[in-house]
Design a protein around this nucleic acid. Structure first.
Length: 843
DNA sequence: TCATACCGGGG
DNA sequence: GTGTACGGTATGA
């Protein structure tokens, strides 16, 4: 560890407590600092020298004596330069008192050289210069970063949430705003009527309240995608000034952002808003960033995430988005509770998931709000590398466009299909960064070795942070900070490989190095597989950095750990193999499509073969119920499930909804009518048969095949369109991911007394297989034999890999014509079929 | 039927 | 200024 590497990673100026920076091209900058000791806020008005890096000084030669080497000293009006060392193309660090002086001079020189007028630095070739936004110029030049000496809880945070009559700011309006202050109290501001002046007065009160609370940070979920653009447009329409920042001018300033909202006036441009002195933080960014690694969220909506993370209050009020204004008119108290719930959850979410961005802001020379939505490669590593090179006085390479070398990928092998028992999953933690560190694979153009130095140090810091986190009491600020630091480091470390493979986006990209990483990765996976197989295991599937394998019957869990440890010992020091999971059985169907039966807990289904939203509910239920006995080796029970389902269909014991498919209409009526004679399609025929000759594309309907070849539309009861906020218990995709399978299922009860009942009595809806409400007058006129065929040909077929042809034919024989294939299943067992062995040499 | 394109959020 | 990956659904050859 060297001091210069510390500078590369953290910057070098110790100034504590910076909570916001606002810099102008004029060289004026404002720095808001919160004293870590007493929390008091001060503003420093400072000057900095705007700078950029050029490949060539030729365009500035016309300045004559006004262009001087830096060591000659700055003087008013002078442009100074410093030549950076080494081979990089960008080698002249040029500064002036005012960015406009610099730009004007460069554009004048370039216009003269090119013989055409240039109006903007964008008109110059991108590889000729590097210009950062003013705040980043300030932070890079000073070596300062945000938040030194501060904890997340030292920030003054406010959450703000708009309730509007709809999503279109051109037409809809704001009627209620929830504001949650730093002390946790929530204020509900409401329009006093429906007139424009009432809304204008509400917007003015919002501004006033924000300024009174004087937060460092304003937070909401989808703040940049909805609330801010909506508020900005309403304020513009109503003529209300929107000064949300800490300076009287400017108010909201748009900045280009790929993941922003369409700019007013030019929907092709996307922008996000900024304002002086406050950081505008969108928890949706934090959620996406978290899920990027964790991949365990049911969705990214506020309610779903809050529930998943245990942030939702027991008495949380839910109102469906499209109903909010109607509900407000009938029952305003409900919407008030709803809005207060929203801001409370946002506050919790921001704290729970926002720590990583907070930690990054203590490292990288960018505003906190930019680090919150930046990609870790272009948004964190690249600025760190640029600062490191300038700190070391080294010339920078320009962006490389990539030499056309294709980016080679990871390995994926399917070794066997069918059912295996005693399955173990072993995988390598952080495979790619481990390989980069182990084999010192970094960008060729990074002659200082900054990227690898940063990755090494981040890994060390992460281990230390994890240890600190474990030592701190749960829920304590120390633990929060340590976990946030660990998450931030992990994020950046894991992006180092992606950084290599993104030519054109990252300054030091190197596709050859990236390919070397994946090549090493394939070699490690191949070694793993060979060595596991050599120790008596049966390989099932291997993907990128992990492998599923089965172990012999006599093995104990200790044997499983032993074999993983033995193979781990054969790997390079920094490549660590771990035992990630143990399962009683696995059905391997196709690559990335499998079912796992844990020793304890619900069935796990992966891949489209086993999970699909358009699947008829009865088919999916059949699969879930049949998979458990299949994985336990009880084929007679699999047959029972099949026969029970067929019987339920034949007796019409299943509600119609269970055979209906949920489809989205993609053709307009005129489009369908044009092709109708050539090909009839069930969903549209169902619409037409129901008298629906007009519809809009995108509409979702449930349709089924009825008797006599008819196509029918299933009209659903109100309040069940799958739009989940209003009915969270039906919208938890998480429940679908790890499906808890009831042994006794409604469909299985079809042989019971209820099966004989025709349709349920009117006015008392029943529940279908997936728990949805049923129409009171269920027609149950579906085409039985069509659905029996579907069950056999589509759903039962997903189990075929696990069965011999004879057993398959016997189990799924039609009970009405059983004789041909009938055979006793008592001794039959599922099978596992080895597939053609993949070449396991190093790629 | 199988491969490619598009989406993920907010009221 | 610059996306990410991933798994799922929707769409077209």
């Amino acid at each position: 560890m060297t001091a210069i590497e510390d500078d590369w990673l953290w910057g070098w100026d110790p100034t504590p407590g910076i909570v916001s920076v606002w810099a102008e091209p004029s060289g004026r900058a404002f720095v808001w600092r919160r004293n870590p000791a007493d929390g008091r806020l001060v503003r420093d008005d400072v000057r900095y020298r705007p700078w950029l890096v050029l490949a060539d000084l030729a365009d500035l030669a016309h300045l004559g004596a006004r262009l001087v080497a830096e060591r000659s000293g700055a003087a008013p009006g002078r442009v100074t330069y410093r030549e950076l060392a080494g081979p990089g193309a960008l080698r002249y660090l040029v500064r002036a008192d005012d960015m406009r002086t610099l730009i004007t001079a460069i554009l004048a020189g370039a216009s003269r050289r090119l013989g055409r007028p240039l109006g903007h630095l964008r008109d110059l070739p991108a590889d000729q210069l590097l210009v950062l936004p003013p705040e980043e110029q300030y932070l890079v030049a000073t070596g300062r970063t945000y938040f030194r000496g501060l904890g997340f809880d030292d920030l003054r945070r406010v959450q703000i949430d708009l309730e509007t009559t709809g999503l279109d700011a051109a037409r809809d309006r704001i009627f209620l705003v929830a504001l949650r202050g730093p002390d946790g109290t929530t204020e509900l501001l409401e329009a006093r009527g429906d007139r424009p002046s009432d809304e204008a007065e509400l917007v003015a009160r919002v501004v006033e309240q924000v300024r009174a609370a004087d937060p460092d940070v304003i937070e909401n979920h989808n703040l940049h995608g909805f609330d801010l653009p909506f508020l900005a447009q309403r304020a513009r329409i109503l003529g209300v000034p929107l000064v949300l920042g800490r300076l009287a001018q400017p108010g909201l300033v748009p900045r280009p952002a790929r993941r922003g909202a369409p700019a007013p006036g030019n929907p092709l441009r996307r922008i996000r808003y900024t304002c002086p002195g406050r950081e505008l933080i969108d928890t949706l960014d934090a959620v996406r960033r978290h899920d990027f690694a964790a991949r365990d969220l049911p969705g990214h909506g506020l309610k779903a995430v809050a529930r998943h993370l245990g942030l939702a209050a027991a008495d949380r009020e839910y109102v469906r988005g499209s109903d909010i204004h109607d509900v407000y008119r009938r029952d305003p108290a409900r919407v008030r509770r709803y809005a207060a719930g929203d801001v409370a959850e946002v506050a919790g979410l921001a704290r729970l998931l926002g720590g990583a961005a907070f930690a990054l802001a203590g490292m990288a020379p960018r505003r906190y709000e930019r680090l919150a939505d930046a990609g870790p490669a272009t948004g964190v590593l690249d600025p760190l590398l640029v600062r490191a090179y300038l700190r070391s006085g080294a010339a920078l390479p320009t962006h490389q466009a990539g030499d056309g070398t294709p980016h080679s990928g990871a390995a994926l092998h399917l070794f066997a299909a069918g059912v295996a028992h005693r399955v173990v999953k072993a995988d390598v933690a952080s495979l790619y960064p481990s390989l980069m560190r182990e084999y010192r694979i970094g960008p060729a153009s990074d002659r200082l070795g900054v990227l690898l130095a940063i990755v090494d140090r981040l890994v060390e810091h992460r281990l230390a942070a994890k240890a600190r986190g474990r030592a701190a009491p749960p829920g304590s600020p120390e633990r929060h900070a340590a976990e946030a630091m660990s998450a931030a480091m992990k994020l950046v470390v894991n992006s180092a490989y992606g950084y290599l493979g993104a030519p054109g986006l990252t300054r030091f990209a190197d596709v050859h190095a990236a390919n070397e990483v994946t090549r090493r990765g394939r070699a490690v996976l191949a070694l793993l597989c060979r060595e596991l197989a050599a120790r008596g295991t049966t390989l099932l599937e291997a993907d990128t950095d992990g492998v599923y394998f089965a172990v012999p019957q006599a093995w104990s869990p200790a044997d499983e750990r032993r074999v993983v440890a033995e193979v781990a010992a054969l790997l390079p020091a920094r490549v660590q193999l771990e035992l990630e999971g143990r399962y009683a059985a696995m059905l391997s169907h196709e690559p990335k499509n499998y079912a796992l039966l844990p020793y304890d807990g619900p069935l796990v289904l992966r891949g489209v073969a086993f999970r699909s939203s358009r699947a008829e509910p009865f088919g999916e239920a059949f699969l879930r119920r049949a998979l458990i006995p299949l994985l336990r080796g009880d084929l007679a029970a699999v047959q029972d499930v099949y026969l029970t389902t067929v019987a339920a269909l034949r007796r019409r014991a299943l509600p119609t909804r269970d055979v209906a498919a949920r489809v989205r209409l993609t053709k307009r009526p005129d489009e369908y009518l044009a092709t109708r004679d050539a090909r009839r399609e069930l969903p549209y025929e169902a619409m037409l048969a129901a008298g629906r000759t007009a519809w809009t594309t995108g509409e979702r309907v449930r349709v089924y095949r009825a008797t006599r070849g008819r196509s029918r539309l299933l009209v659903e009861p109100e309040d069940d369109d799958g739009d989940g906020d209003a009915a969270p218990e039906l919208d938890d995709r998480d429940a679908d991911a790890d499906i808890a399978v009831p042994e006794q299922h409604p469909a299985g009860a079809a042989t019971g007394p209820r099966a004989q009942a025709p349709a349920p009595p009117r006015g008392s809806p029943t529940r279908s297989i997936d728990g949805a409400a049923q129409p009171a007058d269920d027609p149950r006129d579906y085409d039985i034999e069509h659905y029996v065929r579907l069950l056999r040909d589509t759903y039962a077929a997903r189990l075929s890999r696990a069965l011999t042809a004879e057993d398959y034919a016997a189990i799924f024989a039609d009970p009405e014509q059983p004789s041909l294939f009938a055979r006793p299943l008592g001794d039959a067992r599922p099978i596992l079929t080895p597939l053609a062995a993949p070449q396991l040499d190093a790629g």
